[in-house]
Every structure is written in C-alpha cells, then in structure tokens.
Design a protein around this nucleic acid. Structure first.
Lengths: 296, 296
DNA sequence: TAGCAACTTGAATCTACCG
DNA sequence: CCGGTAGATTCAAGTTGCT
C-alpha cells in the first residue's frame, strides 16, 4: 500500500481496492462528504432521499480500512427544503450504528464567519455537525495533545490564594461536581476551555464546541474547511507517523494538515481539478515545512 | 380558560384537560423536559429506551393546544452510555415528524461558561439542542424583535481578515451570496434580504447558535435554564399579549420571561415544591416590573 | 461589578470471573 | 452454561473567587 497519495476517482468504487486501501491500515478518517442538495449542479449533488443508501456502502469500506482502534470524523449538515430541515443526516447516524459503528460524540463546529442568511423563516446557518464514530470502545484518543497553555491570570491568582481556594467547593445540586483551585497550582497546561489565543487571534474551543474561522482561500471549491478543523482532530486522534484518510478530499485540507503534523495521508477526489489542486497544495505545504525547518 | 396559571401535576395527564388547555389557544410552547437518565435521583429520570413513547402522547396534546401558526421549542440533549451517545433524541425528532410536526430548525445553545473537563474518551458537554417545531409552514416569526446592530456583525466578521482578502475570497466562489457580500463591502449596505432594516437602522439576521451562560443560582433545581433562553424565543415567536406554555415548568423561568415581556403564561410542574417556587418567583418578577415602571 | 477561568470524585453501570 | 458478585469503567442539566 502506498502512502501520501491522492487518487482521482469515485470513493464508491475506488475504496474497494484492497491493495490501495488495505484493511485495518488507517488511524483516522476525516471527511466532509458532499452534502445532500436539491440542486444537481452543486458539488456532489446527492439527493437527500438517496443520501443514506449512497453513503452506506462507502461507510462499509471505511470500516474495513480503519484500524479497530481508529476514529471516523464526519463533518456534515443537513439543508432545509420547503421550510423543513432534511432528516437524512440523523437517519444516517442511525444507519451507521446499524452497520456496526459506535456513535461516540457530536461536536458542534460553530462557524465564526458564516454568510448571512436571507430567508424569511430561517436564520444564518452558522454551525455544522462533526460526528465522531468508532469501531470499538477503546479507540485511541490523545487528549493531552490538544492542551493549551494556562492563562496569564494564573500568576496573579496563585500569588494570593484565599482560604476558600484551598477547600473543595461542591455545587448546590446533587451533581457531586466541584472544584479546588489549589489543585491548579503549578499547572503549565490545561484542557481547552473557552478562549484560546493563537497568533493574536482568539479561538474558542470549549470541550465539544469548536469555533474556528472558515477558510479564507476557497480555491473555487464550495466546501473547503479550515485547516484548524482537521488539525484539531488529527492531533486528538493520531500520533506522528499515523495515517489519515479523506475519501472526499476536495482541495486537500486534510492532507495538508496531516503533512504539517508529520502524519501520512490517503485521499480520494472525484473532480480532477480539485485532486490536482490538492496535490499542488500539499506539495507547497511540504516545501514550506522543509524551508522553515519545523519538526513538529 | 384561565391564563397566568401554573398547575401542579403530570403533563401526561393534565394537558388533556380541554377546559384548562383549550385547543389552538397557545402561541408558543417552550420547554426543557426531563432528559433521559440512567440515574434515578436526577430530575425526571425517564429511561432512554422509554423516552419516545413517554413523550409522544404529551406532544400530541401540545399539538392540539398550539395555535396552527404557533411554534414549539424543545430544549434537550442526550447523554452518553457505555461510550456511546444515546439515540433517543434523534429518534424523537423523527417520531414527532411522523406525528405531523414540521421540524423547522435546530438551534445550538452553546453554554459559554461550561467547565472544561474530560474523561478517557470524552470531553465535557458544552452545548445543547433547541429544536424548533411548527404545525404549518406559515408560522409566525418576528425576526425584528431579536435583531442585532450591524456594527457588531462587521466588527466581529472582519476582526481576523482584511477586507481585500475577503473580497478576493468571496469573488472566487460561484455562489450568489459571495457577490452580495462583496457588494456590501463596497457600499456598506447589504441587500434587504440579508439584513433587516428597522427604523432606518440595518440589522443582521442572527445566527442559529445561541450563546448564553448556564444559570448559576439553581434554586435547588438541577436544570434551570437562563432567562435569556426563553426570553429570546418569546421575542422571536410571540407578540405582546400572546400566550406561552411550558409543560415542564420547573422553577418558572419561562413564566418569568413571559411576564417581563407582557405575555401570558401557562405552566405545568409535577414537583409541588418547584411549582410553588415558580409561583413565588413569577410574583416577584411581576412586582419588580411594576416597581421599576418598565412597560415592555 | 461584570467577566473570566478553571476538574473532581461519587455512584451507576458494565464486565469478567467464579461457583 | 448461567447467574451473581466484585472490581473496573464510565459519566456527570455544575460555580464562584478574583481582578
């Protein structure tokens, strides 16, 4: 099996190739498939009512290719037809469970820069679903990899600790949750919570809500996701040297993120122009990394 | 039918009373029912596997009581069992559609003050679902009532990118939306479809992500939602003098919000102590409004 | 004063093993 | 092989001090 390749073709066919995509060989699948659309000319253009039956055979192959301890991240959002939200996405979740996938989580990707809405009965659609599926309960998850530095507040706060900071404060409900500020003393890194400052930009990243800017450069492709999105999940679910697969690669964000993080990638893209753009962009990213001497 | 009353009792029974809850009499139903729970001591404690069949008869009555042009807002979030998310919430959505409801929208309530936190295979849950259902396509919606000044919108949107970048980005897409935004950049005005013009001011249509903090004063109730949540939906879907129903009233947030906005309310609460607390809190709110001379 | 910034630990459930 | 039990695993509708 060759790594770091982007195949031009239809995932519904090409994923069945057991030499190119060997069973149990991939650590993470992350993808944003074509969404169901009423209008045929939009990218992909699977009809909502056919969506589940179109996706299931592909998911069957993905299950074969994924390592038993791997994860599958599916970025998707149903549209609205005739005033109603489509149901194919939630039907797909139930169908994937029937196929043997475990539905672990639904992350909310809150899109900071969503376009304004223009509908009388509907607001701007400013979030998408990122489903996390796994093959078995003990999938790999590297939570420490997404820790962030503790805030500057801690210096001041820890200097003047009050009596109450040293005792455990339990909530008034019977939830048994509590906090003890003294336990945070000396901590360098913390789990992601609300506002993360990164290169002077503020990103919000509470546990299962992700807030990134949408991509600035969209390469004439209507569904590019920002690098931060695959980056976050690649850090969370893989380690250096692991393999990441995107069966609907588009212009290659997943492959670029994987490359910058020293992971290998595999991709499939049906539109030749997109596949070509993806290969070029990955090459540029690899060069950039080499030039800058970054060893992640 | 008497208005501004909170009945102590079980919604599964009491909503069938056609004198207390007359057919087609309510403009908005907003509620946060007990979630499915494994733990018995938690409020409500309906088992996930029984949830849909428990809820459907109640929803049938809600459909009877709601005006044809009214809306039903359901705040809920599934938990996790044995490493997987429960499926009863998405099954409920499909079942409610079968019952004749239109699924209009799913708002994301992003709890911006949620704790960080993690378990071996899971981060802390920091968002909940707010489903919007309606009986028919032409439900009432007063978007002006929740408008946001356009200044905030442009500031936030362009904080992280230059306007030139934005034009370049947007004009690369084939979407019509892109041209609208590009136009807007040049003229500082947007098509009226994108922006609400109200008293000569331009307002953005809000997104379908709501950012409210969870309530901190819990009144011995483990699941109080913040006043902002019912307030926002009451403004959006009702006018002064309309009637709002909460069949799982808890300590009365919905009734308080309705009172402060000069709407009438109806409520049902099964726990006598909560019902009593709700009546007391509504009375306090009414008094407060009178004292301060606010006429909303 | 408003806003910010941070996990813990008990209990229910699951599983593996033993009688 | 089945059922019961002990040990392991999983999950949680949160607040509040400080600047």
């Amino acid at each position: 099996m060759q790594l770091d390749r982007i195949y031009t073709g239809d995932s519904a066919n090409i994923l069945r190739n057991k030499e190119r995509f060997r069973s149990g060989s991939v650590d993470l699948i992350i993808t944003s498939p074509p969404y169901g659309h009423k209008r045929k000319h939009v990218y992909g253009g699977i009809r909502p009512k056919n969506y589940v039956s179109w996706f299931l055979p592909i998911a069957e192959q993905l299950k074969r290719i994924l390592k038993p301890t791997g994860s599958f991240i599916l970025n998707i959002k149903e549209g609205a037809t005739n005033c109603e939200r489509e149901t194919y996405v939630i039907e797909l979740v139930l169908a994937l469970r029937d196929q043997g996938w475990l539905w672990i989580e639904e992350f909310c990707w809150y899109k900071k820069n969503s376009f304004p809405g223009k509908w009388r009965h509907r607001f701007r659609d400013s979030w998408e679903r990122c489903y996390h599926f796994a093959r078995q309960k003990d999938f790999r998850m590297y939570q420490d990899a997404v820790k962030v530095p503790i805030g500057d507040w801690s210096n001041e706060r820890f200097r003047s600790m009050s009596q109450k900071d040293y005792i455990r404060n339990v909530s008034g409900t019977n939830s048994k949750m509590g906090r003890n500020v003294a336990n945070w003393l000396g901590r360098k890194k913390v789990y992601p919570h609300n506002v993360v400052v990164f290169e002077k930009e503020h990103y919000e990243r509470p546990p299962n809500v992700l807030r990134f800017s949408t991509s600035c450069k969209n390469y004439n492709h209507s569904a590019v996701f920002p690098l931060e999105l695959p980056t976050w999940f690649i850090k969370l679910f893989t380690r250096s040297g692991n393999v990441v697969l995107d069966p609907f690669m588009g212009v290659g964000s997943t492959a670029i993120a994987a490359t910058l993080l020293n992971r290998s990638y595999l991709g499939v893209e049906i539109v030749p122009e997109y596949a070509q753009a993806a290969r070029r962009r990955v090459g540029e990213a690899r060069q950039l990394k080499k030039d800058s001497g970054i060893i992640a």
